[in-house]
Design a protein around this nucleic acid. Structure first.
Lengths: 189, 189
DNA sequence: CGTGCCGTTGAGCGTTGTCAACCAGTGTGG
DNA sequence: CCACACTGGTTGACAACGCTCAACGGCACG
């Protein structure tokens, strides 16, 4: 489990490139897979200095054997991961560049805020433009131009590993963001 | 759980369109979510006549409480779903149209074969070109042209709700397909 | 003071989308 | 039995979004 910093889930491509599949921020489980799917089908790397907490394979199995509430919580976390992945698929498959980037920043801002990592309207966002490109299925050059446009329109600014969202409500409306997929009220029912 | 036929997981878009997120074929669990995430963040629909088996919410909870091996199996199935989603993300984000379509047919062929639903080199594939477009983040027109190209190159043919893969090995190499993400040997460790 | 990474900008090109027309197959009602 | 409508597939022309290549600027680091 990530305790501090950002990590990244990615796949390497035939042509030497890489596709970024998810970002892990504090509070996220990063490797529930290993306990069950023994072959990993992707890689994980730190993006900044990170602290992580280990949960051993045996502990995982014990949880399933002895603590059904915890097992359900783990299952729940995985289902949320899946929901996020589905939304990324929509974002990348259907939205054009400007909305795509805006949507991504909406998500990361709300997720950061949910774990208390925002300061007013800005948050820790350590990605380079190349990394954003690998994430959003765009070229680095186009990411650059798109960020410029979003800045010019007054939506957001990225500087020195921090992103500032000038008006979250505006950005949510602009990008067509629907926060429900994040299932941010944990275990709610 | 789908027993017979194809179903589809999708999200409706602001502009009236829809994004297709996954296909469910016989053997797939379609709604483990409902038992835990009470709000559904997407929709499911049948694409052909379908038979389904119901597992009640209570049964799901009982499984977690009383049968850790079954709970693990459910968890495992969800992790595989997630792996497929990740690969779709790569496919749509990084590959150009022809490879994208080829990759998709590879996957559906191998998944169908794994549940014994292929006949030699062809299998049930009920999607229209519009549905393929909503799946792969391309326009219907471009799907049409791409299928034409793939046919001309001798890779695959689609006709009357069946797809024929002329040489799976060729198609796998062409599309850069790596089957490991499907985790097709169930429960292996 | 160089070296290297990251960000920025311009020019030209290519893949893919849009619009529009048309064809083939199928089911329906007169 | 034959219009008719409807759905799905096919094709062409043109526009646009995003990519590639290339050059350059700022900044940190050794």
């Amino acid at each position: 489990m990530i305790v501090d910093g950002w990590a990244v889930r990615y796949k390497s491509l035939r042509d030497g490139g890489r596709a970024i599949i998810a970002f892990l921020i504090p509070g996220d489980l990063c490797d529930a897979h290993v306990a069950l799917l023994d072959r990993m089908d992707h890689s994980i790397a730190a993006l900044s200095d990170c602290s992580v907490a280990y949960i051993s394979r045996d502990t995982m199995r014990q949880i399933f054997a002895e603590n059904s509430r915890l097992a359900q919580a783990l299952f729940w976390a995985t289902l949320v991961d899946e929901a996020v992945l589905r939304e990324w698929l929509v974002n990348i498959g259907q939205r054009e560049a400007e909305l795509r980037v805006a949507h991504f920043f909406c998500e990361m801002f709300l997720r950061s805020r949910a774990v208390g990592l925002t300061e007013d309207d800005n948050f820790f966002m350590p990605l380079t433009q190349v990394e954003l490109a690998d994430t959003l299925g765009l070229s680095a050059v186009h990411i650059n131009r798109t960020l410029k446009d979003l800045r010019k329109r007054g939506f957001l600014t990225v500087k020195a590993r921090r992103a500032t969202i000038h008006d979250v409500e505006d950005l949510i409306i602009f990008s067509g963001f629907t926060p429900n997929y994040l299932h941010l009220n944990p275990g709610a029912q």
